[in-house]
Amino acid sequence: MDTALLITQLLNGLQLGVLLFLLAAGLTLIFGIMDFINLAHGSFYMVGAYICGTLVALLDSFVLGVILAIPLTLAVGYVAELVVARTLYARDHLDHVLATFGLILIFDTAVHLFWGAEGMAIPLPDWLNGQIAVSETILLPTYRIAIISVGLAVAVGLYVLVTRTRIGMLIRAGASNRTMVQALGVDIKRLFSLVFAAGAAIAGLAGMMVSPITEASIGMGNDIIIVAFVVIIIGGIGSVKGAFVGALIVGMIDTMGRSYLDQFMKLFMSDQNAETAAPAVSAMLIYILMAAILAVRPQGLFPPRVR
């Protein structure tokens, strides 16, 4: 096997995993605490990317653009919570799905109105655009390393926030027992708004980071959000740890499946069959994984303790 290729693919898997985690973290907390399904969570991923793109063009600085785009995406999330999501908490999941489906249409068209139908490329500064030489044959793209680092940093930050701080304690308590938190006299509405807006900002951050590679486009969040849902279901809804483990598993399996499944399948079937079947199976791999995990553990790998 080609070591350089393997390392590239491992990096790609890790990058996808990290991005999925950024999306899944908000999703799982929002669902865990508010019992709210937000299909439009992927819209924040898109909105974040467009806001960031505009700021980068305006300020001519990628880092500054990202730093300013985060609070702006947070504000968009805050408004969405206030106007639509808040009125839906008491409703059933079907209503959540439909209303946030409507929100997706609204966000997608709004982006179309403001930024046009064309995608938006976000240029990287030179210092992020290079490669780091590990050895003579192995070169790692700097920006991928940067994405992974930022993602891991957010993961660590979230972990510390959730396990070590008072607000994190409330979030955890909220995920396992809502009435208890209310009984403690916490303003649950504010907690909800905060978590929702923060989740939106983190999803936006993921969109900002992916756009220099793929460019920002309308509906960019709509496919990855489904994968993020797969992640939180595998990991156990409501668990940040589950989201992290699930995201890495899904990111790795998806990437590795696409690159190596045909070689793996050739071990026990004819070359021709393997080459025909591998693309189909690798595209379905994460869903097969999810079905398998749910068949054995309907609550996912790390379900939060009793509700």
Binding site: I37, I226, F229, I233, A280, L294, P298
Partner: peptide, 26 residues
């Protein structure tokens, strides 16, 4: 075997599976 949101999401995941299956059937 699942309920609520899990059911919603797993039915969606299965349909995505079919979706990708046909995308890959050149």
């Amino acid at each position: 075997r699942t309920k609520g949101v899990h059911f919603i999401m797993i039915t969606m995941a299965f349909s995505q599976m079919v979706f990708f299956l046909f995308i890959s059937l050149e």
